[in-house]
Amino acid sequence: MIGIYCTTIYHLLVAISLTQNDFKNQEVILFVSPHFVDNKKIINNLNSNIGKKLFKKIVILNDYFGTKRYAIERKIRFFFFYRKAIDLCKKYTFKKFIFFPGNLIIASLFAKYISKYSHDCEFGFGDDGLASYINHDEYTMLSESQNQISNLLNYNQYLQMYKTLYVMEPDLVVDNKKFILKHINHPDLKNNGFKELIKKIFTKGMIPKCDILYLQQPFIYDSKKLACFEDTQTKSISKICNICKDKKLYIKIHPRTPKSYSIPSKVLKVNGTDIFEASISSDINDTVLITLFSTAAFTPFMFWGYTPKIILLYQIANQSINSSRLNKFIKKFKIVYSRYGGRIYEPNNWNQLEKYLKVL
């Protein structure tokens, strides 16, 4: 038996791909703690015949996202783990368990109960987007409050059982000294059945065909320390509107961004709750993606193999804040991307950006 634990829609997308491709003809139990908008609808779709054909069992844990009870429920489970999860750990012999990064105490508890009954189980983390490539060492680093709980209940020994990292592009992982890297196969672009399956489970509609798609990020809503990035984002959207007046411009709002977020009237908005990776088609190859450093700019290639032009703006914001790992990742990504015909532009200043925009 293979176990997979997810919290986000992107995790679910990758988990379904794993089940359809890498673990085809193997039994998989999916554990979901849905930390996303529209979770009821998506969970209902999973619990229908669609999901039953994919997974041996689908187990929903803590489906109170959006309420105060969500955080309370999660903390309670640090001390009293989910009974239905423990029962399945006893009932089945797991050969693999993949935890898509979320709360590391929960990761420790899964390892505790699975290893108790499945002594040879391999534990690994799943592809979480850009974080898996540049911040993977944090997957075994507890926060201060988590560390206090872990020391009290001796959970850290179980967290150290996670030795493997499953990613779409192992060659792009930066400064890895901790994990055995395993490749997740890309979905087959010729497999229309898989595309239709993803649409049925996740999407309300496809990303409209457009010339430019701006991938917005919720900087000031995540931290006041990121204000310089927010300033760059706001200014860049304004410049694009002024320079690319004859282009069809859409902005993809990040799911964590409040509905009150203001954008220029001439920019068309794409719903923030739809998952980007499940809402794109080969039309994305004719679109220019612009963002500071949103994971969504890389995933059309990393998940599907599409190669849209990408303009990254992070260097304009404040070079002193840039992560050396992010720079290493982008350098690696550009090499791989170019092999498949993809192109990335990284303007250092506003003048360079204006030059790029004028020749689009």
Score class of each variant (00 low, 15 high):
Thr8Asp: 07
Leu13Gln: 08
Phe23Ser: 10
Phe36Arg: 05
Phe36Gln: 10
Asn44Ile: 01
Lys52Ser: 08
Asn62Ile: 02
Lys68Asp: 13
Lys68Phe: 05
Arg69Asp: 14
Arg77Thr: 13
Phe81Met: 08
Tyr82Val: 07
Lys84Trp: 02
Ala85Lys: 01
Lys95Val: 15
Lys96Leu: 08
Lys96Phe: 07
Gly102Glu: 07
Asn103Met: 04
Phe110Arg: 01
Lys112Ala: 03
Tyr113Cys: 04
Tyr113Lys: 06
Asp120Glu: 14
Glu122Cys: 09
Gly124Phe: 06
Phe125Gly: 07
Asp128Ser: 10
Tyr133Val: 02
His136Lys: 04
Leu142Glu: 08
Asn147His: 02
Tyr166Thr: 00
Glu169His: 07
Val174His: 10
Ile184Ala: 04
Asn185Asp: 10
His186Cys: 10
Pro187Ile: 07
Asp188Asn: 15
Asn192Ile: 10
Ile198Gln: 02
Lys199Asn: 10
Lys209His: 01
Cys210Arg: 15
Cys210Gln: 13
Tyr214Pro: 00
Gln217Cys: 12
Tyr221Ser: 06
Asp231Gly: 01
Asp231Ala: 06
Lys239Glu: 15
Cys241Ala: 15
Cys244Lys: 00
Lys245Leu: 09
Lys245Asp: 11
His254Cys: 11
Arg256Val: 02
Pro258Leu: 12
Ser262Asp: 13
Leu268Gln: 15
Lys269Tyr: 09
Lys269Asn: 11
Val270Ile: 15
Phe276Met: 08
Ile280Thr: 13
Ile284Asp: 08
Ser294Gly: 12
Ala297Gln: 00
Pro300Ala: 08
Pro300Trp: 01
Gly305Ala: 07
Ser320Gly: 02
Ser324Thr: 11
Ile335Asp: 11
Val336Met: 05
Tyr340Asp: 02
Ile344Met: 01
Glu346Phe: 03
Pro347Lys: 02
Asn348Ala: 07
Gln352Cys: 07
Glu354His: 09
